[in-house]
């Protein structure tokens, strides 16, 4: 099923319920694209009316802003706000906690006011409305949960991912450092785009040690940058065949074999 853009909706005289903000990682990163596709399948299965901006979308500016480059952030953000306001967008859903945070908390001061939700929140809602089926594919698998900083500690959402995971009937083993005590993957604050400062260990490696302690074979993540960092960390310890890192949307898709 094709995904329609905002421009196509407008041309047809329609307005979608949600704008799906794909983000840079979701659009270009090979691994994150799989999450984008999994989430799209869920939206389609649930019969949601949604559009993407397509080539009219550009970086929210989160990394530029946290790197200290306010000019670049303002240019990106104001351009996006022009587009979003032009389409009279009201509700935005995104699979990236960094886009989620910037759209939700930083765009209002620049003139962009939207109702922004993270895809784990929408998936949770659609499951409770009976619009998304849960299969048995993840049943009794040993699973642990990695909270992204920008969904968890920054925006206080620890419940939605866990509520979705509850439906999978997996064998959930939380890490000692979870929820508000969760350890960062090491990507935030634009670290994703630079080498680490000198130290004893990479942050993702420290997180992988905590993950391995649980004995889980699946890590449920909710951020494309966390997924990259955790997968890199597993590869560095040659554990990539023993532990899978999956987004919440992928867990649902795989449970159903969609």
């Amino acid at each position: 099923m094709a995904v329609r853009t905002m421009a196509e909706f407008v041309a047809a005289g329609e307005q979608p319920e949600y704008l799906f903000w794909v983000g840079c990682a979701g659009s270009y990163d090979a691994r994150a694209k799989k999450v984008t596709i999994a989430f799209t399948k869920l939206l389609q299965e649930a019969g949601m009316s949604f559009a993407i901006l397509g080539n009219e979308e550009s970086c929210t500016g989160d990394a530029a802003r946290r790197a200290g480059n306010e000019f670049l952030f303002q240019m990106s953000a104001l351009q996006n706000i022009e587009v979003l306001n032009g389409y009279e967008v009201q509700k935005i859903v995104t699979a990236c906690p960094h886009c989620f945070n910037t759209l939700k908390n930083e765009y209002p001061a620049l003139g962009g006011d939207y109702e922004v939700i993270h895809h784990t929140q929408l998936i949770d809602q659609l499951i409770s409305e009976g619009k998304i089926r849960i299969g048995k594919g993840m049943e009794s698998k040993k699973l642990t949960i990695h909270d992204s900083c920008y969904l968890g500690r920054v925006n206080g959402e620890y419940i939605a991912p866990r509520s979705v995971i509850d439906h999978l009937q997996a064998d959930v083993e939380e890490m000692a450092a979870s929820r508000s005590r969760g350890l960062c993957c090491g990507a935030g604050g634009a670290q994703m785009f630079k080498e680490d400062e000198p130290g004893d260990q990479r942050v993702n490696s420290a997180r992988i040690d905590q993950i391995l302690e649980t004995g889980a074979s699946v890590v449920a993540a909710n951020c494309p940058f966390c997924i990259t960092m955790l997968m890199d960390g597993l590869k560095a310890k040659e554990k990539q065949d023993e532990v899978m890192v999956l987004d919440i949307s992928e867990l649902i898709v795989q449970s159903n074999d969609l």
């Binding site: 080539n55 550009s58 670049l72 990106s76």
Partner: peptide
């Protein structure tokens, strides 16, 4: 950070990519 800054400025993405954004 310079490649990331340049890429955001010139192509609206944190990475310089040959593809269109909606290619996925």
């Amino acid at each position: 950070w310079l490649p990331m800054f340049n890429s955001v400025e010139n192509s609206g993405s944190v990475w310089q990519m040959p593809d269109e954004r909606a290619a996925w």
